[in-house]
């Protein structure tokens, strides 16, 4: 069954079209990734699904029911982790989760149990009585998640839940998301971080300027750009690299340098490996290893949108 069905959904802010006629569906058990640069319209789309914004045009169905007609049903079955932290600093971690879970009709012993469960789930089991104002960024993010899962939603919507936190907290959160998913929760996951999406999502939609420009599994998305190849060349030191000369070689689309790895994206049709290596040798770079790999999601994104995900 489709947990979520979105049909020709649009959102206008005045004359500005933030979400432009998107259609998509999320099946039960999926971790659906929403990938897009800043201002692409991810949050706007998500907020309409969570009934936080009015729909300008189109339809949304949650578990087969139209959310406009069955607002309460939809809300009961959705949990949202907002992009911005949404917790009360002057209430303890326990009180925060209990308050929000209580709004979903949980009472008494059951409520208590679910609150404890949710806090333990995000690794805050020993912080019941602590106030979030004393929490690190990562702990706040985790509490932000606990507040969204205590009522055990069928569909959990996470809007950039790992933004600006330490790697340890991030790994913890990613682990939690996978675990939640194994427990039967369907998840929509928004992120700027390609690796995250690539690691946990079963299906991905790339959204740009309010439109979904590509959608599918990792494999399917990568297949879109089979005309591209990625060549990684490890050198002893990339200091003397003449990037522009490398870019001038026929077929080469992009050159990126990461530490001692020179990454070249090139048309797969053109055989230019020899010329690339010759150029590197001319720059007096000591080549250690050469590897040709299939394009990454990053490449897919860049090729489709013409812009990089992160640096804006």
């Amino acid at each position: 069954m489709n947990v979520l069905e979105v049909k020709q959904l649009s959102k206008k802010f005045g004359d500005f079209i933030a979400v432009d006629n998107i259609t998509m569906s999320v099946k039960e058990g999926e971790i659906f990734g929403f990938l897009g640069a800043n201002g692409a319209g991810k949050s706007t789309a998500i907020n309409m699904i969570a009934s936080l914004l009015r729909v300008t045009k189109g339809e949304i169905e949650v578990l087969g029911k139209n959310i406009a007609k069955h607002s309460k049903f939809a809300k009961m079955n959705i949990g949202i982790v907002p992009q911005e932290m949404a917790i009360y600093e002057d209430m303890t971690a326990y009180e925060n989760v209990r308050f929000f879970a209580g709004l979903y009709g949980l009472r008494g012993a059951e409520l208590k149990e679910r609150v404890i469960e949710a806090l333990a789930f995000v690794g805050l089991g020993d912080k019941h009585k602590s106030y979030p104002k004393n929490f690190s960024g990562g702990m706040k993010r985790r509490l932000n998640i606990a507040c969204a899962i205590a009522h055990r939603p069928k569909l959990l919507i996470m809007d950039e839940p790992t933004v600006g936190i330490d790697p340890q907290s991030r790994n913890y959160i990613l682990g939690s998301v996978k675990k939640l998913n194994e427990l039967g929760c369907t998840i929509i996951y928004t992120s700027h971080y390609m690796e995250e999406v690539e690691e946990i999502c079963t299906r991905i939609a790339i959204i740009d300027h309010g439109k979904i420009i590509a959608e599918g599994t990792k494999g399917q998305l990568k297949a879109i750009i089979t005309n591209q190849k990625n060549i990684s060349i490890e050198v002893r030191s990339a200091e003397n690299l003449n990037k522009s000369k490398l870019e001038a070689i026929a077929g080469v689309n992009r050159v990126e340098v990461e530490d001692r790895i020179v990454k070249v994206t090139s048309d797969s049709e053109i055989n230019n490996l020899n010329r690339i290596i010759q150029q590197l040798m001319a720059d007096d770079l000591e080549i250690r290893a050469v590897e040709e790999n299939e394009p990454s999601l990053e490449t897919v994104f860049l090729t489709l949108t013409g812009r990089s995900l992160r640096d804006q």
Partner: peptide, 9 residues
């Protein structure tokens, strides 16, 4: 937190 309140039933 208005977001959470509004998202709840």
């Amino acid at each position: 937190t208005a977001v959470r309140l509004l998202a709840s039933p």
